[in-house]
Design a protein around this nucleic acid. Structure first.
Lengths: 353, 353
DNA sequence: GAAATTTAGGCAACCGATTGCCTGAACCTT
DNA sequence: AAGGTTCAGGCAATCGGTTGCCTAAATTTC
């Protein structure tokens, strides 16, 4: 029947305060409250007394102190290019869900693809004693000896698990679909050079085109430029395609965001989608289905990839070097056909007014 | 001249190791490396010896230990409804920039507007010893005695600074603009009831409408439903508006994402934007300018709001109860006219086919 | 009834840094 | 030459938990 009002303005009760309150050592209290196996030698009654006291004093363990002692912070550092619409957001949502479920926190730092910021971010996270890293579309140079999981990153080092998309299949889905519709003059918008998916995807597209017996016209390849995560790079890339005067009936873009930018450029040039030009995007971000026209796109299971990364990093952290199996987890894309694609209309190709 | 290879597999050097290395006490080393004022009694030569040793051993301070001792973690907890396209992302980008610049880390937890998750998140963050909270579009129930800054949240408690939009002005911008174009039958899509901007915005709209002598027809008010952060709620809300059969020539939506959903619903009903119906969105998210048609919208300076929040929380943390001025920071909206609006066309109002 | 075990919980070191206080030595002052 | 300062840096407590080892009483085993 202890008095309920103790220091109302108190920050939080510490373990020691609980210990004094029940008249036991902090060791005993710690063992009970942190569910240590050593607590089994403490009788139920005492345990309940401790629990009650903790509740009464509103005890909250100081996780900094615990982490310091245990050498495990239950925190992972997440490296992303930026917080922007589209790709990152969805992956992060999955990652967050998975991590919180497993009792982990995370720190995000976005580095805008700048090498020095990436290194600085890694350093800061190490100082903060993260238990591991998750890198999303990020080129890791300086490698720490910490568990690491990458999503869509190139050249996995050792002790890293990488979650990657089946690029081969993704390219085939899009190319075969466009070819099946009758397209032969397919323009391509490549990713920025710093984006780690750019190269593998490009190789896969070349292979898929060869397999489908379509020639890729170098004049019909535009690359996204600039590090803006917005729609502008796609917009400008499409303008360059139009300026090249080479005829095309479809564009396969690096991602949905640039597809949307490209559509805008086409519209401004007086071309209609899909009547004059078909567009296939990539990712299937949330807004893809609500574009006008709704975007046909190659879906990456972004949320799932985030979840898989969470599982992988937790597994890696918690089983020290156990069977380091599954170095690479490959996920499959899916073609989502909406209304931005259709058969090519005759030979028409309106030059830019 | 010392040997450069020390324990290559070592995690990181600790202060003590540096101290042993240079043959000094860890106290002295700490003072020098953490830039303590007490370091001034240590001669330059010694300081340099210490610095060199730290560099050689690649010493990185353990910030957990430092935080524990100093009672300041240089971390703020960020509460958001979810990581989704649109609103949150932009605010977070600004917030991140501001926080990192000031040397702070942040932990994000998204709570999907679920009360128990909000409380749980606050508790977890307190356990992790955050120095303060930033809440974005979040209703804080359980208030901690920690510095807090809210963005677009209702009912500021004490010791919280709130960053809010000038709703009055925002409503007037949109309503006056639509009325100026000749619109009289303006439909409205209200925010979800759990969204903290919904009420103030709605009041402001009512006031602006009254001021402009337009009657708001209750049949022309639809509310977003469901907690999906995607475009669907707007899509369905627009469908309900159409189903009501009440004629309207414009819609003013709660945010851009729902505006995009609404446009889709209108298109499916055979209506053109802006020929048949004008749409004004809200927020000016990244993709707004690239919609088809590009969205006329009331811009919130989201990135700036994030930056302001960062500054405010840092100030609050670092100046304990100093002049707690500026309880509320109001930012101004701006009307961005693009192509989703135009004058109403005669009396035409096509019923849903 | 003695030895072995279990029960109940305390002691104190430790995680890695920070910091108030202290001590000798050197240097200055008058 | 005695006393006062400054210099250079060490001691040890502390932040809040955790945990290996230990002890003393109670209980069980033989």
């Amino acid at each position: 029947m202890s008095d309920a009002k103790h220091d109302p303005a108190r920050k939080t009760a510490s373990l020691k305060m609980v210990a004094e309150f029940v008249g036991l050592s902090s060791a005993a209290v710690s063992r009970v409250l942190s569910g240590s196996p050593a607590a089994k030698s403490i009788p139920k009654a005492t345990q309940e007394r401790i629990l009650a006291a903790a509740a009464e004093l509103k005890y909250r363990p100081n996780l900094l102190a615990r982490s310091l002692r245990r050498g495990r912070s239950h925190t992972v550092g997440v490296l992303v290019p930026e917080l922007s619409e589209g790709y990152t957001t969805l992956v992060l949502a999955g990652l967050e869900q998975g991590l919180l479920q497993a009792g982990y926190f995370y720190n995000i730092i976005s580095h805008h693809h700048r090498v020095e910021l990436i290194e600085q971010a890694q350093t800061m996270m190490i100082e903060r004693a993260v238990d591991g890293f998750v890198a999303i579309d990020t080129v890791l140079h300086q490698h720490q000896q910490l568990p690491t999981v990458t999503i869509s990153c190139p050249d996995s080092h050792e002790w890293v698990t990488s979650i990657v998309l089946n690029h081969k299949r993704a390219a085939e889905l899009a190319i075969d679909y466009l070819v099946g519709l009758g397209h032969r003059q397919i323009a391509l918008i490549k990713g920025q050079s710093f984006s780690s998916d750019t190269e593998p995807r490009w190789k896969a597209i070349e292979a898929a085109a060869a397999r489908a017996h379509v020639r890729l016209n170098p004049a019909l390849v535009a690359q996204l430029e600039g590090d803006s995560p917005s729609h502008e790079p796609g917009y400008f890339a499409a303008q360059r395609l139009l300026a090249s005067k080479a005829p095309f009936t479809a564009i396969f873009t690096f991602n949905d965001v640039s597809a949307i930018g490209a559509i805008r450029a086409l519209h401004e040039a007086g071309l209609r989608v899909p009547r004059d030009v078909s567009i296939v995007g990539f990712d299937d971000v949330q807004s893809a289905a609500f574009q006008n026209p709704p975007l046909t796109t190659v879906r990456q299971p972004l949320r799932t990839m985030g979840l898989l990364a969470a599982e992988a990093i937790v597994r890696q952290i918690e089983s020290p070097a156990e069977k380091q199996s599954s170095r690479q987890v490959m996920v499959d894309p899916e073609l989502v056909v909406r209304e931005s694609t259709g058969p090519p209309t005759a030979a028409k190709r309106v030059a830019k007014a």
